[in-house]
Nucleic acid binder design. Structure first.
Lengths: 193, 193
DNA sequence: CAGCCAAGTCAACGCTTGTTGGCATAGGGT
DNA sequence: ACCCTATGCCAACAAGCGTTGACTTGGCTG
């Protein structure tokens, strides 16, 4: 029985995402992916050229961030965290990237690019302008930490929380980072517009 | 020239911490550690038995968390984040554990134990009692995220911030997680003592 | 000076990894 | 019925890993 090439490719991609999400790029093996797809490891090379090519084909990072400029200023934080929660459970692209990035500086660069090209441009217009970069960075720390604790390390109390609880707790934090007065109110450049 | 055994052991440990911090447990190699210590890989095995033994000897996690009960209730957040910042730059034990834990469930368990045995017991008494576990988890997300962004992924805006800026921004967040009213102000059990 | 023990080197093992090239086979178009 | 091509498998490679055991050297003690 010979499957179609498209079917096999898709089966490999599914298995690859599974393995990359569980073990990260380096610990995931081509052989394990092939086994999960019920196929010979050589097929992976035929269709994707190399392990790196497989990764690139399997992982395309699109955070699908909403346009925050059409969100009421007071609800930006809640909107952001709600979006990320649903986005995380849509597929495990982000877990893959997290697991792969930690411990490899090249993949860290990959994630830095995601921050630079997707998070920063979306978040900064919603932030107080004079310190927008800092604020976007702070938002990233909270979101990264939540993802790490809940989906990677699986800290029990963080796993146990419901979406609504998380939104109610973390939303104000993001709001604080984006819109509140600077540290200690120490930035005279701050302008409430 | 023959060094003393203690000197060699210590040189190996220093090199090991460096390698583990840079690459995590799995990607760090015994051979690289040995090379950095200007020594034969076999010496590592003689002194530490195995790579796992080396790791255990090189990494002992003591967060040295202060006693929060002697800190004014309003300053718990600032005290916590200030402590972690100085602790992180004291040595790179935590970076090692972070880099090693992501992508290996056994090491993730290790980090979960650190949370359970050190963070939770220290933080929970300072939190509102009826939801102490959740609150400790939230604190962990913010601290983990900051460490990941600043010391592992090295997001530029997060690296650029000074200690005082971070303390001023993140302190209130931790304070919020520990002491503020529950989500939606829904916990009437909160008591200001 | 002889001998012994700690400190260190060396070569090799078994294993796993990504990757390659050659070989089988099925199946549809002519 | 034939053949050609896409699909797939198998065996093997080179490299890197942790780990092992036997050997060499240096320096102190008697």
């Amino acid at each position: 029985m010979t499957r179609s090439a498209a079917m096999t490719k898709s089966a490999i991609l599914i298995a690859a995402r599974e393995q990359f999400a569980r073990h990260g790029y380096h610990r995931a093996t081509v052989r394990a992916v092939a086994a999960a797809a019920a196929i010979d490891p050589a097929m992976v090379m035929r269709y994707f050229g190399s392990k790196a090519g497989l990764f690139e084909a399997a992982v395309t990072v699109d955070l699908e961030l909403p346009d925050l400029s059409s969100v009421p200023a007071g609800q930006v934080g809640h909107t952001l965290i709600r979006h990320f929660l649903t986005r995380w459970e849509q597929d495990d692209t982000l877990v893959i990237l997290l697991r792969s990035s930690i411990g490899d500086s090249e993949f860290a660069e990959h994630l830095r690019q995601v921050f630079l090209q997707q998070v920063a441009p979306t978040v900064q217009p919603a932030a107080e302008p004079s310190s927008a970069a800092h604020r976007a960075g702070l938002v990233a720390t909270q979101i990264l930490g939540l993802a790490t604790a809940r989906y990677v390390l699986e800290l029990p109390p963080v796993v146990a929380m419901s979406h609504e609880e998380i939104i109610a707790w973390v939303g104000p934090t993001l709001q604080h980072y984006l819109r509140d007065g600077g540290p200690l109110g120490a930035h005279p450049s701050e302008v409430a517009q």
